[in-house]
Computed example of a mutant assay.
Amino acid sequence: MTPEAASGASAPASVRRRIPLHTLCALALLLAVGFLARRHWPVLEGGALRLAVADHGWLLVGASAAAGTWVASALAQQGAVPRRLPAGRLVAAQFAAGAANQVLPAGLGAGAVNLRFLMRCGLPAGRAAAAIAVKGTAGALIRGALIAVLAVSCPGAPRVPHVSGAGLAVGAGLAVAAAVVLTRSRCRAALAAVLADIRAVHARPARAAALWGGSLGFVLLHAAVLVAVTRAVGLPLPPGLVALLYLAASAAAALVPTPGGLGSLDAALALALTTAGAPGAAAASAVLGYRLLTVWLPLVPGLVVLGALARRGAL
């Protein structure tokens, strides 16, 4: 075999090695979503038509809640940082981070924007990354607590599925593997830095209140967007149940890190709503409305703000 042929044969293998696994999973999911969308196109079309004649008052409420998520995110990020940040630029950075999050998977876009912003505000790279980790940890704990509370207290909440012994064994194995990873020197040092920052934040009650209050507000406002959209399209589901369905769907979608949850969150939300008894067209219109208010309408303005912040040296 000639050197050229050998290099040509090895090129696909090297390309495959360079492609991350989550990228392949995301592409596979997007293809599956496209296939399902084509197969169920009449349902999606009916959902879009239903959204077009929805109650504009409720849609305005949903839009206001979506705008509030950027303020809540800024409040949580401020709470994770001991020093005071410029409020206006902080909110603008969260708006821009939301747009960047639609481009890169698993929150990498938002994380990169916030990291650059915090470093421009004078934080070292390690401290900026730890502040983002503190904010993410608080958000995850808030979501878990809300799911637990709503699952117990909300009427009509779906029952927790039975977990077999094999499932428990797999979960225990994953927990042990995570513990082994966290005990490695680098991970242990990073974890120690995050814990130190958490202690520093909670030493100042105002910062702790901002962190937890902003994280709670961010989750509740996103749930409020979906509740408002379900009201706008005439979907008679209790607000608490809708909030629980949103939290469960967003947690499931996080397992497949597509950009902005594209495809994964949409499918999980639609499945959750139909499982709760919503007609297919109504569930599709609710998902479309939620995406319209939280992604598509803010996307272009968010990218403009992102470019403006970069030109002014704020990122």
Rank of each mutant, 00 (worst) to 15 (best):
M1E: 12
T2Q: 14
P3Q: 14
E4A: 15
E4I: 15
A11I: 10
V15S: 14
R17V: 09
R17Y: 13
I19C: 05
L24D: 11
A26V: 00
A26L: 00
A26F: 01
L27S: 03
L31C: 13
A32M: 14
A32G: 15
V33A: 15
G34Y: 04
W41G: 11
W41K: 10
V43A: 11
G46M: 08
A48N: 04
L49G: 15
V53H: 12
D55Q: 07
H56I: 13
W58H: 13
L60M: 10
L60T: 11
V61K: 06
G68T: 10
G68N: 10
V71H: 06
L75V: 15
L75Q: 11
Q78W: 00
G79N: 02
A80W: 00
R84C: 06
P86V: 05
A87W: 14
L90C: 04
A93G: 08
A93S: 13
Q94P: 02
F95L: 10
A99I: 09
A99V: 09
L108A: 11
L108S: 09
G109L: 03
G111F: 04
V113D: 06
V113S: 03
N114G: 13
L115K: 07
R116C: 08
F117L: 05
L118H: 02
L118Y: 03
G122M: 04
P124F: 11
A125P: 07
A125R: 12
R127K: 14
A128P: 03
A130E: 13
A130F: 07
V134M: 04
V134K: 00
L141P: 02
R143W: 07
G144Y: 07
V152H: 05
P158I: 04
H162S: 12
V163Q: 13
S164Y: 12
A166C: 12
G167I: 01
A169C: 09
V170M: 12
G173A: 15
A175L: 15
A177C: 09
A177P: 03
V180L: 14
L182C: 10
T183L: 15
R186C: 03
R188D: 12
A192C: 10
V194Q: 11
L195Y: 05
D197W: 08
D197E: 15
A203V: 10
A203F: 11
A203P: 11
P205H: 01
W212Y: 11
G213A: 05
G217Q: 12
V219E: 10
V219T: 11
A223V: 01
A224T: 06
A224R: 04
A224W: 05
V227H: 02
V227Y: 04
T230V: 07
V233G: 02
L235M: 10
G240S: 08
L241Q: 08
V242L: 02
Y246S: 03
L247G: 02
A248W: 09
A252V: 09
A253G: 03
T258A: 04
G260Q: 00
G261L: 01
L262S: 06
G263W: 05
S264E: 06
L265P: 05
D266V: 00
A268N: 01
A270L: 14
A270P: 02
A270R: 12
L273G: 07
L273S: 01
T274P: 03
T275M: 07
A276Q: 08
A278F: 01
A283M: 04
A284T: 10
A284C: 13
A286K: 02
V287K: 00
V295T: 15
P301N: 00
G302A: 07
G302S: 05
V305S: 00
G307Y: 03
A310I: 00
G313Y: 02
A314S: 08
A314V: 11
